[in-house]
Design a protein around this nucleic acid. Structure first.
Lengths: 198, 198
DNA sequence: CGACTTACTTACTAATTAGTAAGTAAAATC
DNA sequence: GATTTTACTTACTAATTAGTAAGTAAGTCG
C-alpha cells in the first residue's frame, strides 16, 4: 500500500492533477474545449500518461462527475452544513454558487454538461442525473423544514420549488458567463428576496 | 436578381438548409457536436459547399445567432404578440419554450451556447449578448405593465424578475434534457403559480 | 452570343484528435 | 536480492477536423 505523505507544499499526484485540471477546463470552457494534449502539455507530461490513468475521455469525464457526486454527499453530511437551520442551509448552498462565480465565473457541473448531454457517455449521464436528483432532494427537504418552521416562504410544493431554484442557480452562472456578474447578483438578490422571511 | 418562386412543396435553398440543419444539431447536441462533414453528408452536398456559403464555422455560428435575433425582433413586434395583454404575452413566451420541448427537447439558443461561450468567436458572443439583452428588456416591460394592471404579481424590480424568469426558462429546457419532461413541466407550473394573478 | 456570376465538386493540406503498443526507470513487495 | 507493479515515455496509427485552390456546369445579363 503506497503511503500518501502530505508534504508541507502539497502537490497532488498526477491522477488528481489531471482531474483537477480537467474540471477547471470543463467548467471554464466546456467539455469539448479540451483534449488529452491540452491536459498533458499543461501538466508537463505526455498524452499517454493521461491515457494511463483515464484510458478514454469517457472514463475521465465519468470520474469527474463521480467525484462531484462524492463531494456533494460529503458536503451535505458535514456537521457544519447538516446541523444548520434551513435558512442557513440555503445560504450555504448559495455560497457555493458564489464561489463558482468568484472562481473565474465557472459554471456549475450541471450547467457545463447539460447542453451536450446527449453526446456524453452513458455512465456520465447516469452520474449527472444522480447528482442533480440528490441535490434537488436535499434542497426540497431544506425548503420543507424552512417553511414549516417559518423561516422560508414559497408557494407550491417543496420539490417543485427546489427544482426551480436549482435550475435558476445553474442558469445564473451561465448568464454571468455571457454577460458579467451583474445578472448573477440580481438573480441571487431576487431569490433571497422571495425565499427568506423578513 | 434571382426570383424566389415558392413551389407548393417548398424546399429552401442550400444556404438556408445548412442553417436549419446546423441549428437543429446545435440545439439537440451542442455546438461542438457537429462538423462540416456531418452537415454535408446529411444535406447531400460536399463539405466545400458549406464553406462556400459559410467560409468558416465561426461565420456559420454567427449567422445562426444573427438569424435568431432577427426572429426575436420579428416575433416581439408581431401584432398577435405585441397587442396582447401582459399575462397573454407571458403565456406566448412560455409557449415558445414549450415548443422547444416538443421539438425533441431542444434547448434554447442561449442554453446551447452559454457553457461554451468563451470558445465562441467574438461576433457570435456579441450577437448572443444582444439577443439575451433584448429578450430580457422585452419581458421586463411585459412584467412591469402586468403588475401595474394587476394581472401579474411579483416582488422586486421588473428587470430583476425578467432576468430570473428567463434564466429559469433556459435552465428548465436543460433539465428536461438531462432527466425528462417532468421537471420542465414542474418549473413551468411553478412559474405560472407565482406570476399569474388568480 | 459572350462575359460574368452562382453554386457547387474534386482534390488536396496541415493540424489535431483519441487511442495503442512497446519499452523503461523507480519503487514496492515478497 | 529478485520479482512484480506503478507510472510513466517514445513512437506510432487511423480518423477527423477546418479550410483552400482550382475546376466546372448552369444560369443571368448586357
Amino acid at each position: 500500500m503506497p503511503t500518501q505523505v502530505t508534504p508541507s507544499a502539497f502537490i497532488p499526484d498526477t491522477r488528481t492533477r489531471i482531474l483537477d485540471l480537467a474540471e477547471a477546463l470543463l467548467l471554464e470552457r466546456g467539455f469539448n474545449a479540451f483534449s488529452y494534449q491540452h491536459l498533458a502539455k499543461e501538466l508537463g507530461v505526455k498524452p499517454a500518461a493521461i491515457h494511463y490513468h483515464y484510458p478514454s475521455k469517457d472514463d475521465l469525464g465519468t470520474a469527474l462527475v463521480a467525484r462531484q457526486l462524492r463531494r456533494l454527499r460529503k458536503w451535505r453530511d458535514l456537521p457544519r452544513v447538516a446541523d444548520l437551520p434551513p435558512a442557513r442551509q440555503l445560504e450555504a448552498l448559495l455560497a457555493v454558487y458564489d464561489e463558482h462565480l468568484g472562481h473565474d465565473r465557472r459554471v456549475c457541473l450541471f450547467g457545463a454538461l447539460a447542453a451536450d448531454f446527449r453526446t456524453l457517455p452513458a455512465p456520465m449521464q447516469a452520474e449527472l442525473r444522480t447528482f442533480n436528483r440528490e441535490l434537488t432532494e436535499w434542497l426540497a427537504q431544506v425548503l420543507a423544514v424552512g417553511r414549516a418552521t417559518g423561516t422560508l416562504r414559497f408557494v407550491g410544493s417543496p420539490a417543485a420549488k427546489a427544482t426551480q431554484v436549482l435550475t435558476t442557480l445553474a442558469g445564473a452562472l451561465q448568464v454571468a458567463r455571457v454577460h458579467d456578474e451583474t445578472p448573477f447578483q440580481v438573480i441571487m438578490g431576487q431569490l433571497r428576496l422571495e425565499l427568506l422571511v423578513g
